[in-house]
Design a protein around this nucleic acid. Structure first.
Lengths: 341, 341
DNA sequence: TCATGTTGGGGCAAAAATGTCCCTGAGGGC
DNA sequence: GCCCTCAGGGACATTTTTGCCCCAACATGA
């Protein structure tokens, strides 16, 4: 039963939106009838015309009934609401999950893909698709988009399609990002996305892990400075989230560094910063590119990560409070709210 | 499970249409991939643009994949079709029912309301609403609409709403139709409908059951002739269907007549004609108004009747083959196909 | 009784969708 | 090699939907 809605959500999300909208509206009417159109707009966060269109629709099917005092449920409407209420919990657990997470971490938006990428590879694809769609929606003429590396962002690059409509875009890697498979390096991903959406791009072929002095020296180089300035002035950042230890190993941190991370309780990693459970930054990999204080100037910081197993890492990074948007899957979301604080 | 779709169909028919359309399309693609857009139009009976919009939609969600050879299902599309196929029989049994009945009785259109008006009073209301919507859709400027009496048509008059957009319409009773509650007389219903949709109307205050000689005499009257001519030139007829014996009793037929009906195996009644199981007319109540041979000139003859108990009567009348459209409920439809020939 | 706030509905320009063409190019039969 | 058919995608007029503001009517409370 629950499964039906999960499948439906993937099969025809628009139809499900239509159903949930209608339900919300009828429920609202049921609760505060007789109620006016504008009231409903405010409560439901829809435009007046949308509400109006829906009202006309419902009126023609006889579920509601408009009087001069406002809109009321007709007997048929009440009857059907009783029936729909039977399976509505299944319909809404996803949406309410998103709401919970949004409020808890003070995010501008939370997008949930039904399913769990841990157990179903298809969901990972879905996540990428949804993130790609959101990415395209976020772009605006003249903007600069920064991306990190990682398998999730690589997935986004795999599934993104062209068709933006304007072309003065720039895609950059958030940081250097060598040191892993070339397919998953930030620069490679930036380039792939840029090519598909018809944007310019810059790469930064610098190892991400540097000695502090080397980094300082490189930062003086005019060419590198130009690119880092560009990166630091990004308007949008899309980043993945990883487990601290896993990333530390993959990036070849020294035993001393890893010991430090463990001592400080690092759980999550994002854009080369390591976060403990409370969201404190316990370690930063020296390098060139986006730095933490730059994030404050970026309008849209989107974290993309899924899978119920990744929940602790996602939660740790979210606790850091640098994101405005989270795109994840139902499994991860459920696990995140399930973790005690 | 099945119940969910039945409820959904009543709650958000548009969303369900969207889902079924999408399913049909994906199924078609699956079967004859790679397939072209225009092919799909022909097979699915949709306009090119609709198919195209849907294709763009599916492409953006990554369920299909367009090549120069045509459209193919993507792996994700195949995957989801396998999942959807699990519950699709539930989704389509209504539609396939409608299809069956349409073909069997050679009708132009069959509209099914989910549910059974016998067991749920609400469905009767739904049936009326759907019939009312169809009625409004069928009207055209300058047309004449004929209606019969009966509780079903009374229901239609109850739920019809205004908003036709043109006003040179005429509504007439198909036949006289005194002899039952005034609320359910054809003339009353014609008048009510006319008033709501802003049409003109004529009534025919003549007992429906007449001696043959009296009827002949009345037919000569100029005023009555004018009205009957109008009735006979109707463009659209909406009629109910009743059980032969029940109607015979209600209309006060004589014991001899009733005996005749029984002897001839009358089952169904519509517009004062009595039909046996095979659809043969076994009796005609003499009267004034629409006669059988007039039906041939009427473009749209719509039978409206619901409830699984009424199935034998509906089937009998449909076997007569005078209808172009049937509006009924799922219960009746199921019972009709269940009856052996 | 009257002022005030809210209702549904009307109207209208802007935006989106739809219906209908056409075009180029790939592939298949001859 | 050539033609012919069918593919997807582009273009554009037309219709429908949307966003937004206004209005008379009704309800409500003073």
């Amino acid at each position: 039963m629950e499964r039906v809605f999960t499948i439906m959500e993937r099969f025809a999300p628009d139809a499900m939106d239509c159903i949930t909208n209608r339900y919300k509206m009828l429920k609202q009417i049921m609760h505060q009838q007789p109620v006016g159109r504008r009231q409903l707009c405010k409560v439901l966060g829809l435009t007046e015309r949308m509400v109006r269109a829906e009202i006309e629709n419902l009126k023609s099917t006889g579920l509601i009934h408009a009087t001069t005092a406002g809109i009321c449920l007709s007997p048929a409407g009440e009857h059907i609401m009783n029936e729909v209420d039977i399976f509505v919990p299944f319909l809404f657990n996803i949406q309410s999950l998103a709401e919970q997470i949004k409020n808890r971490f003070n995010l501008r938006e939370v997008i949930l893909v039904p399913g769990d990428s841990q157990s179903d590879e298809m969901i990972k694809r879905d996540l990428g698709r949804v993130a790609a769609a959101y990415m395209k929606k976020s772009l605006f003429p003249g903007c600069t988009l920064a991306v990190t590396g990682g398998s999730t962002l690589a997935e986004v690059a795999d599934v993104i399609t062209d068709g933006i409509g304007f072309s003065n875009l720039m895609v950059v890697p958030a940081r250097g990002g060598l040191g892993e498979e070339v397919e998953q390096q930030a620069g490679t991903i930036a380039a792939r996305i840029a090519k598909i959406i018809g944007a310019q791009y810059r790469m930064l072929h610098i190892p991400d892990k540097l000695q502090e002095e080397t980094a300082q020296a490189l930062k003086q180089d005019p060419y590198i400075k130009e690119i880092t300035d560009l990166i630091k002035s990004s308007d949008i950042l899309f980043h993945g989230i990883g487990f601290a230890m896993e990333m530390a190993n993959r990036r070849g941190l020294t035993a001393a560094e890893i010991a430090l991370l463990q001592a400080k309780g690092a759980v999550g990693e994002a854009f080369r910063y390591y976060f403990d459970e409370q969201g404190n930054i316990v370690y930063e990999v020296p390098g060139i590119g986006l730095e933490l204080h730059d994030l404050a100037h970026i309008q849209t910081v989107v974290a993309v990560a899924g899978g119920s197993n990744k929940a602790p890492a996602i939660k740790a990074v979210l606790n850091g409070g640098r994101q405005t948007v989270l795109i994840t899957d139902e499994g991860a979301a459920q696990a995140i709210v399930g973790l005690q604080d």
